[in-house]
């Protein structure tokens, strides 16, 4: 059997001196879609940011292997180039840097990592236009500043567009569904599904199971109080939708 694409073993981390993650363990195989659910403050976004290498967190224990390599030893940009993509819950606006420039720079960073040449300008435009059609994004947004003046839905679709252009091995999508209307949710779901492949994996972080109507997960995990307290299949998400999180919190031990 192949080694998992992502293997998190007893990962603990703190932010601002306060422990947030308490020994998270998780394995994600290539070809799988996992959903991580949990109440507010349970550590979901922290887990995503720690995996993506955001400064400001202190790893206090555990290991993470990504495609066999020690993920925690890599700086953020090398994690991205190695194929780990973080879809931000709150994508930032960067006036003055066009979408086209960022998409091309990001794609070329990944291509160089793979030993490929920078993409030709013509091929790049063809590629991006194709992905923009998938995400129902107006081509005019290519020349606009990154997320500058975008609606909430446009920002989230733009995150998925970046993901489709970069073609990561592992996509961590941090509440990509928040703030989306039903049509936008379908478009985002379609975009995520278009990336599904035997060599890739997706981890969807969400509060609600409605995105999972469109992106059907292989496994669902509940993160509470900084640790995974329950794992199951899609039925677990439906049960959470009915019962909420309290019954799991009661069962989860409080951490010191």
């Amino acid at each position: 059997m192949n080694a998992p694409l992502l293997k998190i073993d007893q990962l603990s981390a703190s932010a601002g001196g306060a422990p947030v993650l308490h020994g998270v363990s998780l394995e994600v195989n290539a070809g799988e879609v996992h959903a991580i659910m949990g109440p507010n403050g349970s550590g979901k976004s922290t887990l995503a940011h720690v995996l993506a290498g955001r400064p400001g967190y202190v790893i206090t224990g555990g290991t993470v292997r990504f495609d066999g390599a020690d993920l925690l030893a890599l700086p953020a940009e090398e994690r991205a180039r190695a194929g780990l993509f973080l879809g931000f819950q709150y994508p930032v606006e960067i006036p003055g840097v066009s979408n086209a420039y960022l998409l091309k720079a990001a794609l070329n960073a990944c291509r160089r990592q793979r030993g490929e040449q920078d993409i030709d300008a013509f091929d790049f435009l063809n590629l991006v236009r194709d992905k923009m059609r998938t995400m129902h994004i107006d081509e005019a947004l290519l020349t606009r500043g990154v997320n500058e003046g975008f609606s909430g839905g446009e920002k989230k679709r733009n995150e998925i567009l970046q993901m489709l252009v970069m073609e990561p091995r592992l996509a961590l999508l941090d509440e990509t569904d928040s703030g989306l209307d039903i049509d936008a949710l379908k478009i985002v779901g379609r975009g995520i599904n278009s990336l599904r492949a035997a060599e890739r994996a997706v981890v969807v972080i969400t509060h609600y199971q409605r995105l999972l109507d469109y992106v059907v997960p292989d496994q669902v995990h509940v993160l509470a109080r900084g640790r995974i307290v329950r794992s199951g299949d899609r039925a677990l998400a439906l049960e959470l939708e009915r019962r909420g999180y309290d019954w799991l919190l009661e069962a989860a031990p409080a951490m010191a």
């Binding site: 953020a76 940009e77 991205a80 960067i94 720079a105 990001a106 960073a109």
Partner: peptide, 18 residues
Amino acid sequence: DEDLLFYLLARGLSPVEA
């Protein structure tokens, strides 16, 4: 802005480029 910087790093840009 550190948030903007991290966003670009998370897209594979080098710290100097970002």
